[in-house]
């Protein structure tokens, strides 16, 4: 599944200062859907290069990290249960780095 991931607000520093990542994520065998929960663990394994604790806490993002799926706050689509589709754009912005 092709997705566009954007990291901002300082989170890009955790992935070699690259803000926009065009990625192809494999769905679990036997399933054709991908949830945010799956995506987060995929990101942790494949995109985040350092200090994963700045991005994740438990099985979700750290409080203070805003998540937008196609410009919509993921709180409106079910947080971790949000289902992703081909060509979705997922944005992560940290609010923890001061302003």
């Amino acid at each position: 599944m092709h997705l566009t991931l954007e990291f901002g607000g300082g989170l890009e520093l955790l992935c070699k200062s690259v803000k926009i990542h065009e990625v192809d994520v494999d769905t679990k065998s036997g399933e054709d859907k991908l949830t945010m929960k799956d995506l987060l663990s995929w990101i942790q394994a494949n995109v985040i290069k350092e200090r994963p604790e700045m991005f994740m806490k438990g099985d979700s993002v750290r409080p203070g990290v805003l998540v937008l799926v196609n410009d919509c706050d993921w709180e409106l689509s079910g947080n971790l249960d949000t289902t992703l589709e081909e060509k979705d754009v997922v944005v992560f912005i940290s609010t923890l780095h001061g302003g």
Binding site: G9, L66, D71, I93, T95, G99
Partner: peptide, 11 residues
């Protein structure tokens, strides 16, 4: 809220 400031930025 900081969160709304971030929304403004993101949008």
């Amino acid at each position: 809220y900081e969160k709304e400031i971030i929304y403004t930025y993101a949008y």
